[in-house]
Design a protein around this nucleic acid. Structure first.
Lengths: 252, 252
DNA sequence: CGTAGACTTGACTTAACTCAAAGATCGTGG
DNA sequence: CCACGATCTTTGAGTTAAGTCAAGTCTACG
């Protein structure tokens, strides 16, 4: 696996290949894809566009998001090399897709993709697994959004990002605003939590985009909610202990 | 479609058939399923159980949920006749499934289900569509959990439930606690919001389980966040107007 | 090297949560 | 059939985690 990792401000794309869905599994599609390049910030498709194409990241990174009428934004996903996006069961895209950094994207006509699904048993299995995985990931995130505190959300996010990187070095391609809209928080809260984690020595921030996880196990414990004293009152209903900020250092 | 609708306290299951995935699409599976009956509150499988079977609701309703170590609960889904559940990409179930009322469930060996997927092209298409639909529904819910207010969440939930019923009459099989854990709120907040909506004449509660939507369009507007004055400050970042409760009656 | 945008930090506000207690409703058994 | 305990729901009063508003600070880039 390539050692270079993209930074938000890096001028041109980095590692090609690897990730989520093995690049070889889409062999029959490979020839049919149109190779596109996008610069940082460029839009790939808009919410409401006809969903007659399917996309796959070759290099770089992509963000998909939705807007509510009053401007509240929801970041649906961050996509990295190997990831498919733009699949839809309806006629229109329900999200807007934008390049987080300069990126190379493959585009397939939807019907061709669906045709390949019918013919290629292996691709079918892969896509089935990817969809199941996506659903399971979505449930993980709904638990996060519905029941986790701000620290737990940010900790979970960092671990998620770290899972793709190596050496517990995370290089954020997305802004604090993107993270906030992904986690259901505000920019300020994300920033504050990162500062707190830094002050506790759990992470190290050399600059806003480069994060090193210095205590992975602590971060994992925080993410799982294990830092709060187990205290279930009525079983079967969410309830959490009260009190502020008791996770001083290495207590467990 | 059958007219009878289940109530939480109804002793025995009601309408069979219909819903989400047409019952005919699973024809090759039909013979292989084991018919099981569960009483209200009974567990169908536990989080952590081997995921070697797939289930489908015939009649009644099912709730899937997860617990965090400290007792916080997340309700993953409510399932109704026709719905599949228990699909997993891993070796274990990640949720616990319980009957919301007396229910009849079909159980299939997982490998048989997966085998049928490979052979039966129509079933494959159906399941693919169902998974895409599930993902899109999940995104809808993540937007709800991450960015919507308590009223907006409850309004969205009621509309979701109403979509399955008729005449805008919703019959809740689940408790306030279930709803709270589904929406990322508390029992008290759910109850208060329902009382507010009732006070505003948007809904009518004859008893806690029977809800009539008296002003569907208002409820829809509330659910979409259209009740708050559109006011985006920094574009691209969630921000909402401040102030309490300005949706007095029929303003718009 | 100055300016626009992104990030951080502080002070204050609020939507939703917690705690608490009073109604409803249910199911069971006498 | 009705009484009674258990459970669920509603409502009130006070608290808090996270949001809002408002400066500052830093950084990248023209």
């Amino acid at each position: 696996m390539a050692t270079q990792i993209l930074t938000r401000n890096e001028p041109r794309g980095g590692r090609i290949a690897s990730a989520t869905v093995g690049s070889d599994t889409a062999a029959p599609l490979a020839a049919a894809g149109t190779r596109l390049t996008f610069r940082r910030g460029q839009t790939i498709f808009y919410e409401g566009d006809a969903a007659d194409t399917v996309y796959r990241v070759v290099s770089g990174a992509v963000r998909t998001s939705r807007l509510m009428p009053d401007g509240r934004r929801y970041v649906a996903d961050f996509l990295f090399p190997g990831d498919f996006f733009g699949l839809s069961n309806g006629a229109m895209h329900t999200t807007t897709a934008e390049a987080l950094c300069d990126a190379i994207i493959l585009r397939y006509p939807r019907r061709l993709f669906e045709g390949a699904l019918e013919v290629d048993r292996q691709l079918g299995r892969t896509v089935f697994a990817a969809l199941c995985g996506g659903l399971s990931h979505a449930h993980e995130r709904m638990l996060l959004l519905g029941r986790k505190t701000a620290v737990e959300r940010v900790a979970s996010f960092l671990l998620m990002m770290a899972a793709r990187a190596e050496d517990n070095q995370v290089n954020l391609l997305m802004s604090r605003g993107d993270i906030a809209d992904y986690l259901g928080l505000t920019i300020e809260t994300v920033s504050r939590v990162l500062s707190q984690l830094k002050a506790q020595g759990v992470i190290h921030l050399s600059d806003p985009t480069r994060i090193a996880i210095t205590r992975p196990s602590t971060l994992r414990r925080i993410a799982e909610g294990g830092v709060w004293r187990a205290q279930r009152s009525r079983p079967g209903t969410a309830r959490r202990r009260t009190g502020s900020w008791p996770f001083t250092a290495e207590h467990r």
